[in-house]
């Protein structure tokens, strides 16, 4: 889940308009950018879609870290393609957010100044090559859990961005599982690397869904607006049920002694992650928070002359074209 703990905004709109709006959502209508919408809906969506977009962009960093060190040319091409996809996903989402009246530069500035967040998961380092497999298998796997139902979200541009993203995301998860499978079935050293990677990424992946929100007012409002479709606990359970047999197939051990099949619920009982660690990471105290924002800030600063240069060139050639047209007339 790339948007965590998104607070819903209070709304002070006309009750009659609000009721009509809710009726449209209940009837399954899509809300489009120019339609009337409550201020709270607009603000909550900007926060949620923005956070989602930032996660796609920052998420390129832990994987980009391994592009030059991929073990084969094929793995390198695959990883490049995946990281390029993440940039595309960020762009689809920024564009969806922009239809709500915020500019992309605004959103970027809010990320860099720490006023907007990105998913906690990207504050963990990718230490060995198997981590690239674990990121695809577990992190993208967890993201898919959330993104598939979001294709039905009430806001049209967000829903359409999700449809595009989901089409591409399945490649991400499968290439990750394929990578870690090769490691798990390789030499004892390689298998140990795969196990080490699962050990480190298991609980951070469970944290991606956020703490239990069964009783959260924010969650209730977002669900009524259909910008959140399932509770965090539902999605986490689904993720565990899907992932445990995949780990067993690889001969890897899920690092949870409390993991036990529960016949009654037809799912796995599992241990909660350490939520204190989660809140620390959100506060900026994870292993890589500082490094991630520094990398984004550097890319933003170093690219400024290039962005400005291209804009200056575009303005000049536009003026030249206009002048030539006037002269010809």
């Amino acid at each position: 889940m790339y948007a965590q703990m998104v607070k819903s905004e209070a709304t002070n709109d006309d009750p009659a308009l609000l009721a009509a709006f809710q009726a449209r959502i209940d009837a399954g209508d899509k809300i489009e950018p120019k339609d009337w919408m409550p201020e709270g809906y607009r603000k909550t969506l900007i926060r949620q879609i923005g956070q989602h977009a930032h996660s796609e962009i920052v998420g390129q960093l832990p994987e980009g870290n391994w592009i030059t060190r991929a073990p084969t040319l094929e793995r390198k091409a695959i990883l490049l393609a995946k990281v390029q996809d993440e940039a595309g996903h960020g762009l689809y989402l920024y564009c969806a957010a922009e239809t709500l009246g915020v500019s992309r530069d605004d959103l970027t500035e809010q990320l860099l100044s720490g006023r907007m967040k990105y998913s906690s998961i990207f504050n963990y380092p990718t230490l060995n090559w198997a981590d690239i497999g674990a990121v695809g298998w577990l992190v993208d796997g967890a993201a898919i859990m959330n993104q598939v139902p979001l294709q039905r979200t009430s806001f049209g541009p967000y829903s359409r961005a999700m449809v595009r993203i989901c089409k591409e995301e399945s490649f991400h998860q499968r290439q990750g599982y394929d990578l870690i499978r090769v490691m798990a079935q390789g030499t004892p050293e390689q298998k140990a690397m795969a196990q080490d990677s699962l050990n480190r990424f298991w609980y951070p992946s469970l944290m991606m869904f956020g703490p239990s929100d069964k009783e959260s007012v924010h969650s209730e409002q977002s669900m009524a607006w259909k910008i959140k479709i399932n509770t965090n606990d539902e999605l986490r359970q689904k993720f565990v049920d899907q992932t445990v047999p995949q780990a067993h197939y690889l001969g890897l051990t899920v690092p949870d002694e409390g993991l036990v099949w529960n016949e009654d619920k037809g799912g796995w009982d599992f241990s909660e992650p350490d939520w204190n660690e989660f809140y620390e990471v959100l506060k900026g105290n994870g292993p890589c928070n500082v490094e991630r924002i520094e990398a984004r800030q550097k890319a933003w600063n170093d690219g400024a002359w290039f962005r400005d240069g291209l804009m200056a060139h575009a303005k000049k050639s536009n003026a030249r074209r206009k002048a030539a047209k006037v002269a010809a007339e």
């Binding site: 393609a81 390029q84 996809d85 595309g88 762009l91 689809y92 564009c95 922009e98 992309r104 359409r160 961005a161 595009r164 962005r307 291209l310 804009m311 060139h313 575009a314 050639s317 536009n318």
Partner: peptide
């Protein structure tokens, strides 16, 4: 969809990278 670009020529190039992979 949409995207940002300084001019039409680069908008086409970006569209090719983003929407026709």
């Amino acid at each position: 969809g949409s995207l940002h670009a300084p001019d039409a020529e680069l908008a086409i190039r970006h569209a090719r990278d983003v929407y026709t992979r």
